[in-house]
């Protein structure tokens, strides 16, 4: 039982990261219909920038989060105007492939700038742990969970009660109708890219404080966002949170009970099963086409 609880606690912390990653990922998909393969690389960029800001320059963490979020968000907006906008109307997979190209470039850039050596965890957040019986929960994990919950709440409010949030929902619902009502899809797309990248940047800083090692394998976490987003439903914000937690917990449980080599397979296998049973995830919009 102790084992189960410990694995679950650790899985929830990990799942919070996945949820944050999946949230940004889903947001971009929901409004622009682009599956962003480079989302993990955005996150990795956030973590590496955190290394520079927090470890090399020793800046305040709040300032660093804001600055990094701004930089990564600016990159997202720039990518929209520079690369994604000319691609509107191209087949689905061409756009996915462009994001693969972006991923390759960001990776190569980070390798050139930071070199291949692995760096350790960033220690900018309060260290220490909470002991509940045999259960050990580090403060970092708790902070991570709180930040991720806060992100969800902010998102929810943003979506429901701001004009741009309403416009984003409108564009996601029906692009032509929204455009006819005077919403500029281009502006909405740019904002979505900005917010999606911003989420990745924030998640990257948090992840840098959580993971034991920062290196170029870190982008693999972007791959984890896929099952998380899929299980919840690719266009559902609530679903991304649930999916992230499910993937995080099931991965840790699988690694604990079956061994580390089953981790990927369980995460993606679970996604596969959900796809087969409920092709549009738990909260995703059902497409009415049946062939």
């Amino acid at each position: 039982m102790d084992t189960f609880l410990q694995l679950t606690a650790s899985g929830i912390a990990l799942g919070s990261v996945y949820a944050m990653v999946a949230l940004g990922f889903v947001l971009v998909f929901k409004s622009t219909d682009v599956l962003n393969f480079a989302h993990g690389e955005f996150l990795m960029l956030g973590s590496f920038l955190a290394l520079t800001f927090l470890v090399e320059w020793n800046l305040n963490i709040v300032f660093a989060i804001v600055a990094i979020a701004f930089i990564v968000a600016a990159l997202g907006v720039a990518l929209h105007y520079g690369i994604m906008k000319p691609l509107v109307g191209q087949p689905l997979f061409s756009v996915v492939l462009v994001t693969i190209g972006i991923a390759i470039v960001i990776r190569a850039f980070l390798l050139m700038t930071y070199g291949p050596l692995e760096r350790g965890r960033i220690l900018a957040l309060p260290q220490g742990q909470l002991d509940i019986g045999n259960l050990v929960i580090p403060y970092v994990d708790i902070i991570l969970f709180l930040v991720s919950s806060a992100a969800v709440v902010i998102f929810y409010i943003f979506f429901k009660s701001t004009t741009i949030g309403l416009q984003m929902r409108a564009v996601a619902e029906n692009l032509e109708a929204a455009a006819a009502m005077g919403v500029s899809p281009n502006k909405v797309f740019a904002v979505s890219w900005g917010i999606g990248a911003l989420m990745a940047g924030v998640a990257g800083v948090m992840y840098g404080n959580f993971t034991a090692v920062i290196d170029l394998n870190l982008a693999a976490i972007g791959l984890r966002a896929f099952p998380a987003a899929m299980i919840g439903g690719l266009d559902s914000v609530e679903g991304a949170i649930l999916g992230g937690l499910i993937v995080g917990v099931s991965e840790q449980l699988a690694a604990g009970y079956f061994g580390g080599d089953f981790r990927d397979v369980v995460a993606f296998g679970l996604m596969f099963v959900v796809l087969m049973v409920r092709p549009y995830g738990f909260f995703g919009t059902k497409d009415l086409i049946r062939v």
């Binding site: 650790s10 990990l14 959580f210 394998n217 693999a220 690694a255 604990g256 580390g260 990927d264």
Partner: peptide, 13 residues
């Protein structure tokens, strides 16, 4: 695993 955030499950074991 080759990639990942932590080795929590392994340490639990």
């Amino acid at each position: 695993p080759l990639t990942g955030a932590d080795a929590d499950p392994q340490v639990v074991r």
